[in-house]
């Protein structure tokens, strides 16, 4: 299987991107009004894993299905299609979202990073390597989403985004066990690899 991989993002790049996303008081460049034709299809362009991609899609196509069915980037998984599982987690402009609850049409001009953009079998991202080292997965179906989230979680902590597990909101955020587990809770793993996933993420982040 060959995949259209062109770059690999480092943790630092993700951190920066997420921090910018969070702090964004400024706005993306103004976009002129554009309307779909009566056919309900719409041209759009995305930058996916660093590669520019043009698509002409039914307006109903989600970002998830655009990736999986149209770009054949099937690393992003469909577990529920309703925002209940997190298997479809990807980074858009450096911020993690559920690709199933987003229309592709709304991402014209966006930068999307999927699991395929993090690394490939012969050139793993440190988080991917840590997941293997800690056996932080079993069936593998939630795994790409877990990894995308894990990388984003580290960035969110650095950016000072609080979580339900945060004690003092004003104090600098740390990667405690409680923080990590709370922040990763949007990614369900029915095989129950949570304990190992926590170990993998801590391994990459460095112990608090």
């Amino acid at each position: 299987m060959s995949l259209p991989l062109s770059h690999e993002i480092s943790r630092r790049e993700v951190v920066t991107a997420a921090a910018v996303g969070v702090a964004a008081a400024g706005l993306p460049p103004a976009v002129g009004g554009q309307a779909a034709g009566s056919s309900g299809s719409l041209p759009l362009s995305l930058t996916v894993n660093g590669e520019h991609r043009r698509l002409d899609l039914d307006t109903r196509v989600t970002l998830l299905d655009a990736l999986r069915e149209h770009l054949h980037l099937t690393g992003t998984k469909k577990g529920c299609d309703h925002g209940h599982c997190g298997a479809c987690t990807v980074l858009v402009n450096g911020v993690r979202i559920n690709a199933c609850l987003s229309l592709a049409a709304m991402h014209d001009g966006d930068e999307v990073t999927t699991i395929e953009g993090f690394g490939r079998p012969d050139r793993l991202h440190p988080m991917q390597a840590a997941f293997i080292a800690h056996d932080a997965f079993q069936c593998g179906y939630c795994t790409p989403g877990q990894i995308c989230s894990a990388v984003a979680v580290l960035a969110e902590i650095e950016a000072g985004v609080p979580s339900h597990a945060t004690g003092d909101l004003a104090a600098p955020m740390t990667l405690s066990s409680g923080e990590l587990r709370e922040r990763m809770s949007g990614n369900i793993c029915r095989c129950g690899a949570y304990s190992n996933i926590a170990d993998a993420v801590v391994d990459v982040a460095g112990r608090p």
């Binding site: 992003t76 998984k77 395929e116 012969d122 793993l124 991917q128 997965f137 593998g140």
Partner: peptide, 22 residues
Amino acid sequence: HRRVDGALKVTGTAPYAYERHD
């Protein structure tokens, strides 16, 4: 031993039933 299929799973390149574009 670490999983021999691990690299495929963590990179999203292990193909599941609905993903057989190959």
